[in-house]
């Protein structure tokens, strides 16, 4: 059955770093589209990686900033949009981690973005009007929907 697109939106306060609103949004989308636990797992990991990255590295001042997070789903894909007013930073321009290195030699910092690249099917970044925009897409296989 075609239900069309379902969209949810919330904001994260960069100071508090509270992700409860984001989790509530993922749960709402899960219910609205009967997403599988596997897809929900991936979305939760990706949102945690990207938002925590912005909070950790995005700001040079001490002020509270708003990070806008949008989540939508069609019959065939889940789309994530994240917008922030932090420093210009394309997280996907960084090199892939070298997994052949031993644990002691390996910097663990790039791991989160490595997960994001692997878990998502399409990733885009743009800088516009002093804001960062990320668009990510996860394709849903027919089994991944209820």
């Amino acid at each position: 059955m075609q239900i069309g697109m379902v969209t949810f939106q919330t904001t994260v306060d960069s100071k508090s770093g509270d992700l409860e609103g984001v989790r509530g949004m993922v749960s709402a989308l899960e219910r609205a589209r009967s997403l599988t636990p596997e897809v929900v797992f991936d979305i939760n990991v990706v949102l945690d990686e990207l938002i925590s990255n912005i909070i950790k590295y995005g700001y040079s001042d001490d002020a509270a900033h708003e990070i806008c997070v949008k989540l939508s789903a069609t019959d065939t894909a889940v789309e994530i949009g994240i917008e922030d007013d932090g420093k210009a930073f394309d997280p996907f321009a960084s090199p892939e981690p070298d997994l052949s290195l031993s644990l002691a030699e390996r910097p663990v910092g790039g791991l989160g973005l490595h997960f994001v690249r692997k878990l998502m099917d399409d990733i885009k970044y743009k800088r516009e009007n002093n804001r960062n925009y990320m668009f990510l897409k996860k394709n849903l296989t027919p089994q991944a929907q209820g």
Partner: peptide, 16 residues
Amino acid sequence: IEYISSAGFRTLLIAL
């Protein structure tokens, strides 16, 4: 566990 992100992996690596 519901999910684990890279922050959790960092914690496990430190524990190791």
